[in-house]
């Protein structure tokens, strides 16, 4: 990357009061190592343990969602363009914001936005009820997750989940998700 492009990228990232930004192939070891770095950093900030665990757990759910989705498309023989996932942890005023972005297939967009709209409309009690309902469902054969990640993030968030879905081409949308803690 050219020097001025790097400068612009760094400047953009600095404005977000960034703790960590990763874009590239999400392997389990990358998720784990970055997670450790985030926790070490937050422990040095001397914030409450429960706040550290909220940031860490939202980060893990987002990163694992990106990785699992990518792996599931690969398993179907429809690999997603390489390295299109990103996770960012930043600080706004006195709270943390964990965001992720990744390409999703156009066919998955209606289901994803319906789920997010539903979660955005629920209060804490409603979110807990949806969480309990989902957690009692039998696991789907071959599924890598339990379908609890988004609900769990919504429960930890202090504001409704923010998201966007932007068409990239005929096949893919870029899905971004922002969780305010």
């Amino acid at each position: 990357m050219k020097g001025n492009e790097l400068f612009n990228l760094q400047e953009l990232l600095s404005r977000q009061k960034l703790l960590i930004c990763f874009s590239g192939p999400f392997s389990h070891s990358v998720i784990e190592e970055l997670g450790k770095a985030v926790r070490n950093h937050l422990e040095n900030e001397r914030i409450e343990k429960s706040a550290i665990m909220d940031v860490f757990s939202v980060y893990v759910e987002q990163a694992q969602n990106v990785r699992n989705y990518t792996a599931s498309r690969e398993a179907l023989g429809r690999p997603i363009p390489a390295n299109s996932g990103i996770v960012v942890i930043g600080k706004e005023d006195d709270h943390y914001v964990v965001s992720s972005g990744n390409l999703v297939e156009a066919d998955d967009v209606p289901g994803l936005s319906a789920m997010l709209e539903k979660l955005r409309g629920l209060d804490k009690a409603g979110l807990k009820a949806v969480y309990k309902e989902q957690s009692r469902k039998p696991r789907e054969a071959g599924a890598s997750g339990a379908g609890l990640g988004l609900i769990d993030m919504a429960r930890k968030a202090t504001r409704p989940l923010e998201y966007s879905l932007r068409a990239v081409d005929d096949t893919y949308f870029f899905f971004s998700l922002e969780v305010q803690l």
Partner: peptide, 9 residues
């Protein structure tokens, strides 16, 4: 001390 959601399940 910590479980991700699929471990919770």
């Amino acid at each position: 001390s910590y479980l991700n959601t699929s471990s919770i399940k």
